[in-house]
Structure formats: C-alpha cells, structure tokens
C-alpha cells in the first residue's frame, strides 16, 4: 500500500521536476523548497484560487511550489495562529484580507505580529437577487424595508466578518435594517435562487456564470465606479450611499524574516502580478479595476488605514 503511494509520489515528483527545471532560477538559494501560504478559507474558494493563480508565474520563475494551505473555520483565528507558530524562515506566508483586519479590531488576533508584504487584489461586491425576486432595484429594497424594517434577509458568508461589516455600513447609511444570515458560499447561492433568501452579497467572480445566464440579478455595486462588465448596475455611491468597501487580498510574513528574502519575495510577487496569464485570470473576475500592486511600505500604510476604518465600523455596529 505504502509502496503504491510512494510510487505515485515519485512519479508526480518526476513530472514536476521535468516541468519546472526548464525555467531559470531567479534567486541563488531562496526559495529552495516549497513555500506554504496559509489562508482561512475553504479549498476552491476565491482566496484559494487567487493563491493558485498568482503561484503559477512564481513557480515558473523559481522552480519551487507555492501552495495554499487551507485552515478554514474558527473565524480565521486558527489559520492566523498556525502562521504565528511557524518559524520566520521565509517559507510560510499568511493571506491577509479585511477579515483579518476585523479580527484585529475585535481583539481576536494581533496584526502587529505580521509584516504586511504585498497587496495584490482589490475586489468589489454586489447585492444580488434571484431572477424571480420582486425586488428589481435598490429602490424596491428601500421601499420594502420602509414598509417592514428588518424584513429582508441577506445571505452572507462568514459570521461577524467582512460581509457583515459592509451590510452594516450600508444599513447605517441608508437607514435600513437588512438582516444578515451566514451561509456557506454554495448554500448561499442555492438559497437565493430557491427564494429562501431575499438577497445575497457576493463578489463578481464567483457569481459571473449565474449573472450571465440571468439567474442572478445584481442590484447594486459597492465600488467607486461602475464595472464595464455590468454597465447597467449602479454603484451605491452614485445612489447616495457612500459604501465602497471591497475585499482585498494580500500576503503577510513574519517580521524577523531575512531582508534579502523579503526583497526576493516582493519582486517575485511584483512580476507575477504583472504576468499575462495571471492578468487573464484577474480579468475573468473583473478584478483589474481596483487592484493595484502595493509593496511592504504602501501596504503597511494602507493596512493602518483599514484598521482605523473597520475599528470604527465594528464599533458603530455594536461589536
């Protein structure tokens, strides 16, 4: 049994080696083995896919694998704690997102223990309804809420996380009382399509297929400008509700990592983010508009500002 497994492993390693040795090595001795990227979301989700996509050009450049390690659940705390337990040797990264900022704001984790390395993606979300819904526009939503406050239920993923913060902020600005109900990403979609939920909040990438087929109708976009892919969907901002929060994705590393290795990593990420293949993946989810590459200093400034923003929002929401 173990023999068979070992046989397969060896075959896989051989194939991998054949594929990878073709590329020139960028750094002399770093990375010399697999780099692990710990994240708090499920395998196959947005962040997992993002890591796999950005890893492609990096693997080509270095000949080493960058693999996502999913430690899902627990509101993201176990993933972060696992990261903190790893040595500062440059072979463990952690994914960072607004969920981590919120955990920091709520005192569940301490973000000063991580060095923000690079920020790569900046997504934008939508409020979506089923095609059978009576809600056809944000006005309908506001009218329904005015008639019976708290009557509309919005599906979100995660509890007391980014989605809750965004809906809470919208409630604050629009004077509504939309109630959030946490679901797994797939159940949220099926419950919206099946009419069990009134609305759902999700980014463009995962819902694109259902938007194109007309099964899900986006009502409003949370961003500064409309998406070229959805020219008829208004932004909340233009309707008078200044909610432009978006989910961004970046990476952090242990602060006492070797400086030369940090340099190498940042430049690897910079090249990977500009890679044609990766750009294509990004464009498929309409991620190219707000995504702007940030190195350690910029990202730190950005992160500090985000911490301020979310601390204030979570405070207002009564957390």
């Amino acid at each position: 049994m173990t023999q068979l497994a070992r046989h397969h492993l060896r075959a896989a390693v051989a194939v991998a080696a054949a594929v990878l040795t073709a590329a020139p090595a960028l750094a002399a001795d770093y990375p010399s083995r697999t780099v692990e990227v710990i994240h708090q979301y499920g395998p196959g989700g947005g962040t997992d896919r993002f890591i796999r996509a950005i890893a492609e050009p990096m693997q080509e450049a270095t000949g080493q694998s960058f693999v996502p390690i999913s430690i899902a659940g627990g509101g993201g705390v176990p993933a972060y704690v696992t990261f903190l337990q790893r040595p500062a040797n440059g072979y463990t990264l952690v994914s960072l997102s607004p969920d981590d900022v919120i955990n920091h704001a709520l005192g569940r984790i301490d973000l000063t223990q991580v060095l923000p390395l690079v920020r790569i993606q900046y997504d934008q979300g939508l409020l979506l309804v089923s095609k059978d819904s009576e809600l056809k526009s944000l006005d309908d939503v506001l009218a329904a809420e005015a008639a019976s406050p708290g009557g509309l239920k919005v599906g979100v993923t995660g509890s007391a996380g980014f989605d809750d913060a965004l809906i809470g902020l919208f409630n604050e600005k629009a004077g509504t009382e939309l109630a959030t109900v946490p679901f797994g990403a797939a159940e949220m979609v099926s419950n919206t399509l099946g009419g069990h939920l009134d609305m759902m909040y999700e980014e463009y990438g995962p819902t694109r297929g259902l938007i194109e087929s007309g099964d899900l109708i986006p009502l409003v976009l949370f961003s500064d400008e409309r998406l070229a892919e959805l020219p008829d969907v208004p932004t909340a901002k233009e309707l008078g509700y200044d909610v432009t929060l978006g989910r961004w994705r970046g990476f952090g590393i242990k602060p006492d990592t070797d400086a030369a290795e940090l340099e190498t990593l940042v430049s690897l990420f910079r090249d990977a983010a500009a890679d044609e293949g990766y750009k294509k993946v990004e464009a498929e989810s309409a991620l190219q508009y707000r995504s702007e590459f940030m190195g350690p200093e910029e990202f730190q400034t950005f992160l500090d500002k985000e911490i301020e923003t979310y601390s204030q929002i979570m405070n207002q929401l009564g957390y």
Binding site: R49, R52, A53, R208, G209, L210, E212, S213, D215, E284
Partner: peptide
C-alpha cells in the same frame, strides 16, 4: 475557472 471556463447554467 483557472482554465478560463465560467461555471454556471450556461456551461
């Protein structure tokens, strides 16, 4: 999705 195929009812 990595292959550029959009999963959805149109698939």
């Amino acid at each position: 999705t990595i292959h550029g195929i959009v999963p959805g009812p149109m698939l």
